[in-house]
């Protein structure tokens, strides 16, 4: 049992690395994608729209396999498995985040942007100091959903052979002819997501100082 837990903690470490690296890359990338989607340049916004449609319209597991194997067939070499996971997850999640950002950005009343313009703020200052702080507050509930889904989606990384938590648990289950490790893994995921939920609750509470 002690060995099992040790293995699962190692698996959890991989899971958490996937989770945090994906967030670090996809959160800013999503904002860039959202800006592209809202661009007045029709070609750019349509191209970004197609990207979002592909990312949201096909299974993540398929995208993962594609990112890992496609370079092999085209260039004769693949990125290492872990890197492929981070790339696939980041571009997939960026598409979802982009649409959440877009909803948030478009919900900021036009009048505030006009007030900012009349006061002489630059577009950049308006975006970073007027729009985004309010967007963050408004998108928190939707972001919470996506981040929780990401915790669970890390389990797909095993498809291309990354030994994250769920793979470790499955291996242990096969070795010991018991489903117990799978359920222990379930508890691990639950605890991770409890932390995520609580974090979002804390942030939302901190942003409660205005309406």
């Amino acid at each position: 049992m002690k060995d099992l837990l040790l293995l699962m903690v190692q698996g959890t470490y991989t899971t958490l690395r996937i989770f945090f690296l994906t967030l670090i890359f996809s959160l800013p990338l999503g904002l860039v994608v959202a800006k592209g989607r809202m661009s007045k340049n029709k070609i750019l916004s349509e191209a970004v729209n197609i990207y979002i449609m592909i990312m949201r319209g096909t299974p993540l597991i398929l995208q993962l396999i594609f990112v890992y194997f496609a370079p092999y067939y085209i260039f004769g070499a693949s990125a290492d498995r872990f890197t492929a996971v981070i790339i696939a997850y980041s571009i997939n999640y960026a598409a979802y985040y982009a649409e959440i950002y877009r909803g948030g950005i478009q919900s900021i009343p036009e009048g505030q942007l006009e007030a900012a313009k009349v006061l002489g703020f630059t577009k950049w200052h308006t975006f970073t100091h007027i729009t985004m702080p309010q967007v963050v507050k408004r998108i928190m509930p939707a972001m919470g959903n996506e981040v929780i889904t990401l915790v669970k989606d890390t389990a797909l990384a095993q498809t291309i052979g990354v030994a994250e938590l769920f793979r470790v648990a499955q291996n242990a289950a096969a070795r010991e002819f018991s489903t117990l490790p799978i359920f222990v893994a379930g508890v691990f995921y639950f605890v991770m997501n409890a932390v995520v939920s609580k974090s979002f609750e804390v942030i939302e509470h901190k942003l409660d100082y205005y309406r």
């Binding site: 009048g111 505030q112 006009e114 007030a115 900012a116 006061l119 002489g120 703020f121 100091h129 309010q134």
Partner: peptide, 30 residues
């Protein structure tokens, strides 16, 4: 633009800024 001020029908204050910062933001950054 700085010579002409505008007061809106719907105020258009920045809800995430205190009263003070609504006033000082342009003074500091512009």
């Amino acid at each position: 633009g700085l010579k002409v001020g505008l007061v809106f029908q719907n105020f258009n204050l920045f809800p995430h800024f205190s009263v003070e910062r609504n006033i000082t933001e342009a003074l500091v950054h512009v």
